[in-house]
Structures are given as structure tokens and as C-alpha cells.
Design a protein around this nucleic acid. Sequence first.
DNA 1: TTGTAATTGAAAATCATTTTCAATACAAGG
DNA 2: CCTTGTATTGAAAATGATTTTCAATTACAA
Lengths: 151, 151
Amino acid sequence: MTPTITVSRWLDLLQSAGCRVTAPRRAIVELMVGTSRALGPIEVYDLGRTEHPGLGLVTVYRTLEKLEELGLIERVHLPDGCHRYLRTADGHQHLLLCTTCGLVQTFAGDDLDPLTGKVASDTGFAINEHWLQFFGTCPNCRKPISTLSES
Amino acid sequence: MTPTITVSRWLDLLQSAGCRVTAPRRAIVELMVGTSRALGPIEVYDLGRTEHPGLGLVTVYRTLEKLEELGLIERVHLPDGCHRYLRTADGHQHLLLCTTCGLVQTFAGDDLDPLTGKVASDTGFAINEHWLQFFGTCPNCRKPISTLSES
DNA sequence: TTGTAATTGAAAATCATTTTCAATACAAGG
DNA sequence: CCTTGTATTGAAAATGATTTTCAATTACAA
């Protein structure tokens, strides 16, 4: 699905949820659909104002909250904080995060179901969620000097 | 190692690091050594004042910071936040966390090295850290009414 | 069009965390 | 023991992030 179609789909979903489609929301949706980096509120605010100069930080908070409610974006946890958002991947995915630029990739990992079952029966916990995440430096950020190409 | 001995060891390590051993620090150390739950600053503050009534929240922040520097405690990330601390486990461990009470258990998991290597070569990332965490409800919190026994 | 309720952004309020600072208390040396 | 220098303490103030309030604006259904 192309980014443009995804933007339309997100805006339709917003509308179906009883929200109005406004210029600030469109700007934020385009941003979140178009990036593979985990962005914090301030980053969304700064990037969003290039497209919609009057954008307010309050609107960023409110829109991110709404998109999270709709399951379109989700919070990403990194070693240094948990206030960044990323568009939700299809199905459950494991994450690989660049701790320098925030770039996120997903990868198909081991099937954790057997381990989950074993740990559950060993401990008596009812397990209902798991995280498998790798952290490192993406190819772009590993290059010391060479030309930059944005994702 | 018994809790008492661990408390002494932590206080010795603090002293070796050039810190003085004071009553507030002793109270916080005893708390962090003695619990298997991930505690946030406010919880440490409230629990700590039962033992040292004059304890200030500022001192909690400062002491937790110092214990983290010494590697005795570390930040734990949960779906709803990342501001809780837990004493560091021996060696690298995977975590199983109770989302109701904050109880943490460690478990020996799969060896992730092969997967790490595969993902690294597939993506070009330099991977230097990973998280494997399970979330759920611990046996105690699953009991609806019955008698409570604190860990 | 027009009316109305949702939405906006600025300002104020709130909450967590950090900094400042004068008073206190640890611990080394007499 | 006592003295002394310095690290530490807790209160208050400062900071920074997030949330709430509110009057003006705007989307969109009729």
C-alpha cells in the first residue's frame, strides 16, 4: 500500500471514529505514515510545522493520543525513554531500533510460544505480552563521514 | 547471599566509591535489596519513610541515581512507563514482569546469539543490546480474593 | 448557506525531576 | 573522645514535559 493510500485510510479511520479531518491532523498523519523512525512529541511538532506552520504542541499530543487509541501508532520503548511513537506494524513484529537516529525495522524472530508456555508453567504467571527488541546502530549511522541519505 | 550480607556489600561498595554511609541511604539500600518488585521513585519515597521518616524525595532520586551508576540497580521498562528500578540480576537475564504489582522474576531464555547474528547480517545494523521480556500476572495477583502473602 | 459542535492554539495549571542552598552529620585525624 | 572539613541532607525554587482551560475558529451535516 502506497503512503498516499495509507494516509487516506488513516484519515478515513479517524473520521469513522467520529473525528473531523483537519489540516493539523493531516500533517501529523502524513508524518507518521511517512517515516520509519520513532518520533517523540517535540520531533513531531518540529517536523509538522514545516508542513503546517501554525501547528501547536498541544494538538500534537492530542492527535498522537488519538492515533494510539485507534491502534495506528504505538509507543516504542528504548533504553533511554519511552515517549516515542511509531506506526504500528502489521501483525506482531519484533523490533530492531537504531539508538542514534531512531530508525526502526521489524524482523521475524524465533517462535516464542514454546518458551512462553514453559516460563508460564514454571512460574505460575499468566503471560499476555512480550517484547523482543534489538538495539544497535543502523547502516546509515555507522557511516562516519560519507553522504547522508534519509530514509 | 542473605539480604543482610547484600545490604552490607552495597554499603561497602558505596563507601568504596567515595560516598558516605548515611541513614537515608541505608534505608533505600535495604528497600532495594529486599524487594523483587520494580519500584518507582515515589514508591521508594513512601516505603522508605516507614523506616526513615524524614526521608526526602530529592534524596531518593539522588540515591537511585548513584546505585544505578554502580550497577547495583537498573531501570526496568514496562508497557506503561520506564521509571522503575530493580536490583540488577547476576549475569544477563530475561525478565518476567507482573503488570499488576510490579513483581519481577528472571528466567533463562533461548540463546539469542544466532538470531542476533542473522538479524545483524540481514539488516546491516551493529547490534549491541537486546531485551526479551514477558509481561503478565503473577500467581499472587491472579488470586481473586484469597489471603495475600507479600513476597 | 447556515448552525452547531468539534477542534484549535495560547496561556495557565499540573506533575515529575533537577538545581540551589543553608543546615546537618559522617568520618578522618588529632 | 573531640574537632574539623566536606559530603549529604531536605526544603524551596527552578525547570521541563504534559495536561487542562478557554475563547476563537473551522469542519461538515442539514
